[in-house]
Design a protein around this nucleic acid. Structure first.
Lengths: 141, 141
DNA sequence: CTGCATGCAAATAGTTTGCATGACG
DNA sequence: CGTCATGCAAACTATTTGCATGCAG
């Protein structure tokens, strides 16, 4: 993964390494603020601008995926740099990556019907996760 | 549709009527700027804040749907105030509402597998529409 | 060394809010 | 006629940009 940066003539700085690591290791889909907070633990001088710039580079290289949920800020996924469904708990904001094979079939059908050349997609489900359902029953507010 | 506003104790102002009309009549999915521009044709004094406030009211009442694509601003749909798929041309920014029945089945399966109580979803496809494909072949940049 | 990356601050875009004035019901 | 909506401007959040300094190659 670092390879790809080297190949494309990008410099490897400690900050970029740190951001890369965070994106590669986090199972969830952090937003810029979360990444920023993490990076600062190791490099307190890092500015948020650098995070944005690095993310922009990684997007261009195709190593991370930008995901925009309805909540103001964008999130990023460094583990699966390709479109995949999300399952978001609207109560605890947890995000899960479910498996759904049937989707490629749907895409094909859609492409055939409309003449569109489909390059990408986004599929997000919103709901309440099992834990939050329990908490709700327990009278939690 | 105006009924619903009356019922819920909201006042009917000319500005609200204008915004409502635009949302109900536009087949596409305008963003706030577009709505604002339209409203100003009839009510030049209207402020963008009023548009936002009215939209917020309509969202609460459930008469319009907020859609956030990846492009900074939110879009709104006053014709189908319930989740439905979108097909977006990344070249000319056109947005189409395709038919896809198979989706409810997918939702059910997902719900069963994860224990989530799914309340909503969002499904957007990105690609190139037939016209833009032609233009691209013709050497258009 | 040379240039690209960093980090700060200022600029920008989209959206929200506070408050005085005005209009719906 | 009281209350809620409007409209202006200021506040806010997420993001981008300009520029001087610093470090990677």
């Amino acid at each position: 993964m670092i390879q790809k940066l080297r190949e494309k003539e990008y410099r490897i700085t400690p900050q970029r390494l740190a951001i890369l690591r965070i994106l590669a290791e986090s199972a969830e889909h952090p937003d810029v603020e979360k990444i920023y907070a993490q990076v600062k633990k190791n490099f307190p001088t890092t500015s948020i601008a650098t995070v944005y710039k690095t993310i922009s580079v990684l997007k261009d290289v195709g190593e991370i995926l930008e995901i925009s949920f309805g909540d103001g800020s964008n999130h990023y996924d460094g583990n699966r740099p390709f479109p995949h469904p999300h399952l978001i708990c609207t109560r605890c904001r947890k995000i899960i990556d479910p498996d759904l094979e049937s989707l490629t079939y749907v895409t094909d059908e859609l492409s055939k019907d409309t003449g569109f050349q489909i390059t990408s997609h986004r599929l997000d489900f919103f709901g309440i996760c099992p834990e939050c359902q329990k908490n709700a029953e327990a009278g939690d507010k």
